[in-house]
Computed example of a mutant assay.
Amino acid sequence: MLEHGGRLRAAAQRYGMAEADWLDVSTGIAPWAWPIPPIEAQDWARLPQADDGLEAAACAYYNAPRALPLPGSQAAIQALPRLRSGGKVGVVSPCYAEHAHAWRKAGFLVREVLAHEVDYFLDSLDILVVVNPNNPTGLLLAPERLLEWHARLAERGGWLVIDEAFMDSTPASSLAAETTRSGLIVLRSFGKFFGLAGVRLGFALAEPSLLKALAREIGPWAVSGPTRRIGLACLSDQGGQQRQRQRLEQASIRLAGLLAAHDLAPTGGCALFQWRVTAHAQPLYEFAARRGVLLRLFIGENADACSLRFGLPASEADWQRLDTLLHDYFKELT
């Protein structure tokens, strides 16, 4: 298992502090969970049914021609390599580590490349994987650039896989509407924007033949009835979605300002997190953990290449706690 943010129980055990006493800003999940709609008894008693409107709601929300519901976009990340017999895969890095891991595990030759290196390597690749906006850097690549890469891959029967897990706040940059194109696959995560990661829901957007093959690989009844009901309610709530985008944008700007006030101006970020490369990453991570604040640490080749990702605090008390933590850390250094 690769390490991810949100491992609060492990941190609580390691540092000897009750889970309830922690401030967890280690993930890129919205800290305000959507209100859960009533779950009817039949949703628990029956097998999930595909004619409940979820697919149509997802197509409308993502502006996509078709959508395949998944038990989290992670399911597609693991299944897509099984739909090809082999080849060379480029993964624009640094990014969510499960992508490279899944292709390597399936026996593909994987090259991790920087965004500015893609044009040089692209003609030697069969598949290119891009996280857009990137996690953890927040880099947002323009749709036009991605479509150019897709066109070069498609000429040779290649794929462009775009993980848009953090795209909900910037829908104009999504390629969901372009997924009629052969070999263009867009993955969307539900739980991050809606603050409901625990329901495990995601979507694959692609041409019909590829979605059918992916559905066969995932298997029947992959998304539970209660999850489908929750997803349908959230994806149909346009007013709530607009309020969430505004709230996330305001909180992200505030977080960037808070970090800058402590000489940690973000190196990158998006609506759901801010990211900073700093030699303080490891000592600040430990300092915070000993005080019950969980950050996300990324280890680099040396101290100067290490980084921290900061998620959004939920309440005024949480904002104050993070502010005080950073103040105290730098005060101890002087």
Results as ranks from 00 to 15, higher is better:
D43L: 14
L211K: 01
G269M: 02
P220N: 10
E3A: 12
F193A: 07
G225N: 06
A18T: 06
H116V: 06
P35K: 06
G202T: 10
L235Q: 05
N132E: 03
P266V: 05
L139F: 10
G90W: 03
Y120S: 14
G53R: 07
A142N: 10
R276F: 03
S315D: 13
L272Y: 05
I127Q: 02
Q242L: 12
T170S: 13
L205V: 01
P38D: 13
E178V: 04
F273S: 08
R247G: 04
F108V: 04
A57S: 12
G28E: 07
P143M: 04
P71R: 10
G198V: 10
T180C: 14
L147K: 06
V223E: 09
H280Q: 14
A115V: 09
A271S: 15
N63V: 14
E55Y: 10
W44E: 12
E155T: 15
Q320G: 08
P313M: 05
R296S: 13
R14D: 08
S93L: 04
M17H: 11
T180A: 15
R82W: 15
G138E: 06
N135M: 04
A67I: 05
V25E: 04
K331H: 14
G198H: 13
V161C: 05
W149E: 02
L80D: 00
Q49T: 14
L248R: 02
A289V: 02
M167Q: 09
I77Q: 07
F310R: 01
P266D: 01
G107C: 07
A154E: 09
D24M: 04
G268H: 00
L128E: 00
G16L: 07
S174Q: 02
V186N: 00
I39L: 13
L147P: 04
G231T: 08
A79W: 01
K105F: 11
